[in-house]
């Protein structure tokens, strides 16, 4: 092992890791938000809107992330949209993730029995309050696991951003490898980084799931 190399390139690698985290977190949050909006629109609008949303979902899910990134980053300027590598990375993340998030939220909506909603409407609770107070808390139990899963998938997709020169972890690692002619150590370190990220996220997801299920446990022990 060439520890001195890691000392020399450590700061760059850490910065790269920071950029990866930034793109991942902002991209995931944005994607989840957009996905949520899509799922809500889908639920509460008429068929033409639904049809368009469905087409959007199919098209985005039917094409590779890398191509979407290329369309935005290389093609964008020709359509008057000039973005920095990091900006286009984040935007394409938001777009790429949104249909998957939308599907997860949609399945959550569908899992709530209609009777509950009718009961709420019958006593005059507004639609927004129904969504916030009745649907979301129950959905959380069901969708935490798929959400965690997908967020983990997204964390690994950040590596693809290196292809459009976003200075994220893989990019910095490749730079280091090229400049020092060492390959094994940097890449094994990189793999470790990602693996850690995945393990930590999975654990976080489990905690959130336990938290979301607390009302189920209480009622179970009460009976």
């Amino acid at each position: 092992m060439k520890y001195d190399l890691f000392l020399r390139y450590g700061p760059a690698l850490l910065r790269g890791f920071g950029v990866s985290l930034l793109c991942w977190i902002v991209g995931s949050l944005g994607g989840a938000l957009l996905g949520f909006v899509i799922a809500c629109l889908y639920r509460w609008s008429a068929w033409p809107v639904r049809w368009i949303l469905q087409a959007y979902i199919e098209v985005i899910r039917g094409t590779p992330f890398m191509i979407q990134l290329f369309v935005l980053y290389y093609g964008g300027p020709y359509a008057g949209l000039v973005l920095s590598p990091i900006q286009s990375g984040i935007v394409s993340f938001v777009v790429y993730g949104s249909p998957y998030f939308a599907e997860i939220f949609r399945s959550g909506f569908e899992a709530i029995p209609k009777g509950q909603l009718e009961a709420a409407r019958a006593i005059g609770i507004g639609e927004f309050a129904i969504l916030r107070r009745i649907m979301l808390p129950q959905m959380m139990v069901l969708i935490t696991a798929p959400l965690t899963n997908f967020v983990i998938i997204l964390s690994k997709e950040t590596a693809i951003l290196s292809v459009v020169t976003v200075p994220e972890l893989l990019y910095e690692t490749q730079t280091m490898a090229a400049e020092t002619f060492t390959f094994v150590e940097p890449f094994l370190a990189l793999s470790l980084f990602y693996w850690l990220l995945v393990v930590v996220t999975a654990e976080l997801g489990r905690r959130v799931e336990t938290y979301a299920m607390r009302h189920l446990r209480r009622s179970a022990s009460a009976t």
Binding site: A159, S162, Y194
Partner: peptide
Amino acid sequence: FRGIPLLV
């Protein structure tokens, strides 16, 4: 194999 990005 699930924890490391495919590109890597």
